[in-house]
Simulated assay, not measured.
Amino acid sequence: MISALVVRFKSPQPRKREDSENYYLCIDEKHERQRLGSLDSEATVDLSIVVPAYNEEERLPVLLNDIRDYVNRRREGDSGFSYELIIMDDGSKDKTSDVAMEFARMHGIRELKAVKHVINRGKGGAVTQGMLCAQGRYLIFCDADGATRFSDIDALLEKAKESERNGLAIAIGSRNNQALSDTVVERSHIRAFLQWGFHTYVTILGVRGVRDTQCGFKLFSREAARRVFPKMHVERFIFDIEILLLARYQGIPVVEVPVNWHEVAGSKMSIVRDSIQMALDLLAVRLNYMLGNWSASDNQ
């Protein structure tokens, strides 16, 4: 009875895109507003960087500077390196999109694309929509707060290429493996306790083998992204778990990589309310796959 209620009332129902959400803004002089691409097409750049952002006008510039520094260093050793930076403004009420576009104009970054959602979807929905239009051979999403050092992407790329099978690979940043490396993780005791409790709950529900499911720094080969994101249902915080479930069901290699991470003030998450919401959402996700309501093999 409880399971039926959870599935009925807690199963996510992603909405279709509004017409305006099929376009992005950039600083192209001739066509500032352009139509988004598709994950189904062939890759046109080396790397796609997807940034979900909701009311991030204050924190976003830190990440944008970090990415710009990384790209400049990368191009010093590889002048042909190409990328796109997709800012998914998830219905912000502040000037998130304006800040992104002003940064692009200030630094001449034609690779920056700003997409504005009419209505807030949630972090998972913003990531999924960004991935579905990405053009990279490899694709990464990262949090707008700049909590993870972006240059750690090199370690994710290295491990993804090492573990890749038949074009399939996922490398995820981890805040739990710092003892194995020289990475640094700084977080509050309450956040550490909640992460431990959440990991325990995830393990009980059968999602095993990954110590840190929630770090917002995950990289995909293009084929892996094609196998995962068209099938996504979850649009809020628990979407990382569905990614890992879909990867497991389809035999996609997943490797955890230690990353440098520090807690940043200004989180949109309510510790009590969202923790309860995440627990219920996770139960709904697990039940839907167990009962066959959702399938990793169907095109959805």
Results as ranks from 00 to 15, higher is better:
S3F: 00
K10Q: 02
K10M: 04
P12Q: 09
D19W: 13
E21C: 03
L25E: 10
C26M: 03
K30L: 01
L36G: 11
G37H: 11
S38P: 08
L39A: 03
A43T: 10
D46R: 15
V51S: 09
P52F: 03
P52K: 11
E57C: 13
L60I: 03
V62T: 15
D66R: 10
Y70I: 03
R73S: 14
R74E: 09
R75L: 07
E76K: 06
S82P: 01
M101P: 05
R110F: 10
N120R: 13
G124T: 09
T128Y: 02
M131A: 06
L132D: 09
L132C: 12
Q135P: 00
Y138S: 12
L139R: 03
F141N: 11
D143Y: 10
A144N: 08
D152H: 14
D154L: 11
D154C: 05
E158Q: 09
A160T: 03
E162H: 02
E162K: 12
I170W: 06
N176F: 05
Q178V: 13
R187L: 10
A192K: 12
W196Y: 11
T203V: 09
T203Y: 01
T213E: 00
F217K: 11
L219K: 14
S221T: 15
R222Q: 02
R222P: 00
R226P: 03
P230S: 06
K231W: 10
R236T: 04
F237I: 05
I252K: 04
P258A: 12
H262V: 14
S267R: 00
S267V: 08
K268R: 15
D281P: 01
A284M: 09
L287W: 04
